[in-house]
C-alpha cells in the first residue's frame, strides 16, 4: 500500500515531467517561429527600434525559408517603400532578390504580408 508521502512525491514527479514536456513544446514552437521575434514594447519604442524589428523579421524569414545556403550570403537589405523591403543574396552567376511586403500591427510589431523571389542574372 502506498503511503500519502509517496503519493505526493509521485504526483510531484508526474507534474514535473508534464511541465518539462510543455516547456519543451513551447520552446520548439518558439524556435520554429523564430526566437528573435521582438516584443511589441521594443518594436514601437521609436522608428529605429521598429526598423530593427523589420530587419530581424526578414532575417528570420531568410534563415527559415531560404535553402540555397551557399554563395556569398546576404549582400543587402534595402527599404524600397514604407512597407516594402528587398533582401539580396549573392549566388554563382546570379543574385536572388527576395521582396517583402510588411504590415505593422496595432501594437507596433511588423508582420510579413508577402514574399516574392526574383533573380538577377549576372
Amino acid at each position: 500500500m502506498t503511503r500519502p508521502s509517496q503519493r505526493s512525491m509521485a504526483f510531484f514527479a508526474a507534474a514535473l515531467v508534464a511541465a518539462l514536456a510543455i516547456w519543451g513544446t513551447s520552446l520548439a514552437r518558439a524556435e520554429k517561429q523564430g526566437t528573435t521575434q521582438n516584443s511589441a514594447e521594443e518594436c514601437k519604442m521609436d522608428p529605429v527600434a521598429q526598423s530593427i524589428c523589420v530587419y530581424d523579421l526578414i532575417l528570420d524569414d531568410i534563415r527559415d525559408n531560404y535553402r540555397q545556403r551557399g554563395g556569398g550570403g546576404i549582400s543587402g537589405i534595402v527599404q524600397t517603400s514604407t512597407t516594402g523591403f528587398t533582401a539580396r543574396l549573392e549566388q554563382e552567376g546570379r543574385v536572388d532578390v527576395r521582396s517583402y511586403e510588411i504590415r505593422f500591427e496595432a501594437d507596433g510589431r511588423p508582420a510579413i504580408v508577402s514574399v516574392t523571389e526574383a533573380t538577377e542574372t549576372m
Partner: peptide
C-alpha cells in the same frame, strides 16, 4: 567566395561547397 558567372571564374570554383539544403536539412 567570389561572385562568378559563365565567363568569369575564380580559383575556388573547383572546390566542393554547399549550394543548397534538402528537406531533411542535409547540405
Amino acid at each position: 567566395w567570389f561572385g562568378s558567372h559563365s565567363t568569369l571564374y575564380d580559383s575556388k570554383d573547383t572546390d566542393l561547397v554547399q549550394k543548397n539544403t534538402d528537406s531533411a536539412g542535409n547540405k
